[in-house]
C-alpha cells in the first residue's frame, strides 16, 4: 500500500513538474546534484542517486537507478572509477543512448579537474587504489569551479535556448564561489599545519586547501577496514608525528576513530561526506562552512 502511495505521489510529482524544467539530470552524488541546481535553476530537474550516508564505492545497480537513467538527458558523476561497481551496469541496462560514454549527456567530472594522490604503483595488493587519483574532489574549491564550468558547457550544448541563463548563473556562481573560497581560507587559518588523521581519503583536497598536515589514515589501505594492528601503529606514530584531530565521514562507522581518540586523547569528529551529510551542509557552500567549522570547534575543545 505504502509502495502504491509512493508510486502515486511520484506520478503526481512528474505531472506537476514545472513546465520550464527542460533537462532531466541524473547526478551520481549530492555535490554534483547541488551544483547542477546552482547552475541550471529550474531549467533542470535533478535526481540524486546516492546520499551522504552511503559509500559511493559500494552502491548497487538498483532498479530505481536504471529507471532514472532511462529518462535522463544528462548524467553527472565523479568518475575516476568511484562508481565503477554500478554506473556502467545502470547505463547499459537503461537503454538510453543520450547518456552513453562519449555523448554530451555523459559527464565524468574527474576528466576535467586536476587530481591529487595519483598512485605511481597500481596493484590491488595496495587496496582500492584509484588509478586516476583521489576521486573525493568535492572538497577542492578549484575542482568545484572547474566542474561548474564543464557542467555549464554541457547544459548549453543540451539546452541552447537556456544559454543566457546558464551563462549568468555560472558568472554568479563563480563570483560567490571565489568570495567563499577566500572566506574559507581566512576562516581555516587556525587549521594551518594541524596534524590530522582521516578514516578514508575523503578530505585530502580540503586538507591541502587549508594547508593541514595529514599524518595518517585509519584504513591500513584504501577501502580496507581499520585493523587493530594498524591503529596501534597510529598510536605509536603519535610520538613522532602528532595528530590533533581525527576525522571520519558521515557514512563511516565511528568505532575506529573513537577507539583511536581515546588512546591518543585527541578529538574524533564526523564531517559531512558531501551535501546532506549533516543538517547544516545543505549545499556546496554550507558543506565547506560546516566541515571547517566542525574542525575549528573540535580544536578549541
Amino acid at each position: 500500500m505504502k509502495t502504491l502511495n509512493s508510486l502515486f505521489t511520484t506520478a503526481l510529482l512528474v505531472i506537476a513538474m514545472p513546465v520550464h524544467a527542460t533537462l532531466d539530470v541524473f547526478a551520481c552524488e549530492p555535490e554534483w546534484g547541488s551544483l547542477v541546481t546552482e547552475l541550471a535553476g529550474t531549467r533542470a530537474q535533478v535526481f540524486v542517486a546516492t546520499t551522504a550516508l552511503q559509500d559511493v564505492h559500494r552502491i548497487q545497480a538498483r532498479p530505481s537507478l536504471i529507471a532514472r537513467a532511462r529518462t535522463a538527458d544528462l548524467i553527472v558523476c565523479t568518475g575516476a572509477d568511484l562508481e565503477v561497481g554500478w554506473l556502467r551496469m545502470v547505463i547499459n541496462q537503461s537503454g538510453n543512448d543520450k547518456v552513453q560514454l562519449g555523448k554530451a549527456g555523459y559527464l565524468e567530472v574527474a576528466n576535467f579537474v586536476p587530481k591529487i594522490e595519483i598512485p605511481v604503483v597500481i596493484d590491488r595488493a595496495l587496496g582500492d587504489v584509484h588509478a586516476m587519483g583521489n576521486p573525493h574532489f568535492q572538497f577542492g574549491p578549484k575542482q568545484v569551479q572547474l566542474a561548474a564550468e564543464e557542467i555549464t558547457k554541457r547544459l548549453v550544448r543540451l539546452d541552447l535556448a537556456g544559454e543566457p541563463e546558464y551563462r549568468n548563473r555560472l558568472q554568479d556562481f563563480t563570483t560567490r564561489w571565489k568570495a567563499a573560497t577566500e572566506r574559507w581560507r581566512a576562516m581555516g587559518a587556525p587549521l594551518k599545519g594541524v596534524g590530522v588523521v582521516q578514516h578514508h581519503k575523503n578530505y585530502s583536497y580540503l586538507f591541502e586547501f587549508l594547508d593541514m598536515k595529514e599524518v595518517g589514515g585509519l584504513e591500513p589501505k584504501p577501502g580496507v577496514e581499520p585493523t587493530s594492528s594498524h591503529l596501534n601503529e597510529l598510536v605509536a606514530r603519535q610520538q613522532t608525528d602528532p595528530a590533533r584531530l581525527i576525522v571520519r565521514s558521515s557514512y563511516q562507522s565511528p568505532a575506529a576513530s573513537e577507539w583511536l581518540a581515546q588512546r591518543i586523547a585527541v578529538p574524533a569528529i564526523m564531517l559531512p561526506a558531501t551535501v546532506g551529510g549533516t543538517a547544516e551542509a545543505k549545499d556546496l557552500f554550507t558543506l565547506y562552512d560546516d566541515a571547517i567549522q566542525r574542525m575549528l570547534k573540535a580544536l578549541k575543545g
Binding site: E117, I118, L126, G217, P220, K221, S229, H230
Partner: peptide, 10 residues
C-alpha cells in the same frame, strides 16, 4: 602496512 600511505606518493 604503514608504508603504503606514503607509497601512493603523489
Amino acid at each position: 602496512t604503514a608504508a603504503v600511505q606514503s607509497e601512493t606518493a603523489t
